[in-house]
Amino acid sequence: MAVTDEQVATLRAYLAGEFDEYERLSERLDPDVDGLGYGALIAGGFFEAVDRRFAGGGTRADVTEYIGDVRSRSERLSEQIDPVVAERLIMHSLGKNSIDDVDDKMVVHTQLLLLIALIGDEQLDDAGLDKFIATTRALGNRLLS
């Protein structure tokens, strides 16, 4: 199994803020069939985005501050993002902590919200977003291999 083009296009539309396109593409995906590949794509993208922002010397305080910033962007995000889970996910991507006791749905849910926040903060153009998506796809396939 590998990440498909449809899954990549769906995640790219979401991260680019093209939500109409994202809604159209996501309806074409079968949760039972594409759930695994799409989850691997999200996990790979989350790892890459966290690595870009925090791996160069970021501290736990930086992580905590960033999570607070994302949650303060809207009341909805404040409700949907558990700060403890979000911090553990980011630290886990940096090679610390464990998330074995975190619910699977909570993991992929928080990953997706933090991923789009991290990509939105990078202010990537189309070329930068394409490169990020290419790396994300490679990592996703590595997860599935």
Partner: peptide
Amino acid sequence: SAFKKADDILDNSKEYINSGHDAL
């Protein structure tokens, strides 16, 4: 540990549109 199935996200994809707006 961090690789989970995203079938629930695909089932509720519309709910993540508003959250994406907020995050961006």
